[in-house]
């Protein structure tokens, strides 16, 4: 969907922002550009919607060199979320979200429907928020409106520049989780910039790690954790590689479904249930193995049931997690 072909960007003051960068973003995936500040990740992103133009090399959008596409059309087809959000403070929330559809000349009824749908998607009730002004909202709500505005015209590509950077850690984690669900639903191609490796590991299907102006490693989160290709990447990823790896795997990926193992593990699953029939310690299928491990440590139980809608759907053993922990 997006292809960087030996792209170099040198600014007018002869600062080299990025040198000879090549990578591809597949359709429907999220690629995270991560690196220390000043490494060129934001410049790389701005090359996609031509807020910057390459000095050498070419950026392809859906197979076409972006230099051959009109700037305004290109930008209207690409959603854009910046860290400062950049909401139009003089417009209501609804008007903000309607910006791109209006620029594209949709008719009013269509725009209204779309605005309501997006506000609902971002968990902002349209009746309550449509006519409010950005000033009246909290930081997290403003960022939701920013994302809604970027998604309004149903873009094929979404660019997000540190979208959750200015939020407090709890709001940030909530928005990340919510955004992962939204992404699963809308299936847009996303290019995401952050300086946090944890955010990159959480949000990305693929990660591009930058050192100053250079692409160091381009791989899946798991491969980056398991096979960092340089000292820089190893340092950047940080200490607790195994825990980070566990946080990438969900419980439902390694659990044994209940219907298959009903007889053999009956004993185990009961250990987690108190006499009142109430489940004391259990896991949800969407939990990461990291939080599963923490529950195992807390409960000191060998096996835990995986519960969804108050029904046990599987079982997971502590040893299975240990195996992965030990490099399995």
């Amino acid at each position: 969907m997006i292809k960087f072909d030996n792209v170099t960007k040198i600014y007018a003051d002869s600062t080299v922002a990025i040198r000879d960068i090549s990578f591809e973003v597949a359709e429907g995936t999220t690629t995270v550009l991560v690196g220390p500040s000043g490494c060129g990740k934001t410049t790389t992103m701005k090359l996609v919607n031509r807020l910057e133009d390459p000095t050498e090399g070419a950026v392809y959008y859906d197979g076409t060199n972006t230099q051959e596409i009109g700037v305004t059309e290109l930008r209207r087809d690409i959603g854009y979320v910046i860290q400062e959000i950049g909401l139009f403070n003089h417009m209501t929330v609804g008007e903000n979200v309607a910006t791109v559809p209006k620029l594209k000349g949709w008719d009013d009824g269509q725009i209204d429907d779309r605005v309501d749908k997006l506000l609902e998607l971002m968990a902002l009730s349209p009746e309550e928020y449509r006519d409010q002004y950005p000033r009246e909202l909290s930081g997290g709500q403003r960022q939701r409106v920013g994302v809604a505005r970027a998604l309004a015209a149903d873009p094929d590509v979404l660019l997000m520049d540190e979208p959750f950077g200015a939020l407090d850690p709890i709001t940030r984690a909530d928005l990340q989780d919510e955004f992962l669900e939204i992404q699963a639903e809308i299936n847009t191609t996303i290019l995401f910039v952050t300086h946090s490796i944890d955010e990159a590991l959480k949000m990305g299907d693929k990660i591009v790690i930058f050192d100053v102006g250079e692409l160091v490693q381009y791989d899946t989160p798991r491969n980056i954790l398991e096979n960092p290709n340089s000292e820089f990447v190893r340092d950047f990823v940080g200490e607790d590689i195994t825990l980070k790896k566990l946080s990438l795997i969900n419980v439902d990926e390694i659990m044994r479904p209940t219907n298959v193992i009903e007889d053999t593990t009956d004993q185990d699953s009961k250990t987690a249930v108190t006499n009142g029939g109430e489940v004391m310690h259990h896991l949800a299928p969407g939990d990461s193995l990291k939080s599963a491990l923490s529950t195992f440590v807390e409960s000191d139980i060998q096996s835990l049931p995986v519960v969804e809608d108050e029904e046990t759907i599987g079982v997971i053993d502590r040893d299975e997690i240990y195996e992965i922990y030990n490099g399995g």
Binding site: N49, L51, V71, T72, E73, L74, R75, R76, Y80, I82, E84, I85, G86, L87, F88, T99, V100, L103, R149, A150, L159
Partner: peptide
């Protein structure tokens, strides 16, 4: 900047 980014 946001206005520029959305293609105004």
């Amino acid at each position: 900047e946001a206005g520029e980014g959305v293609g105004m």
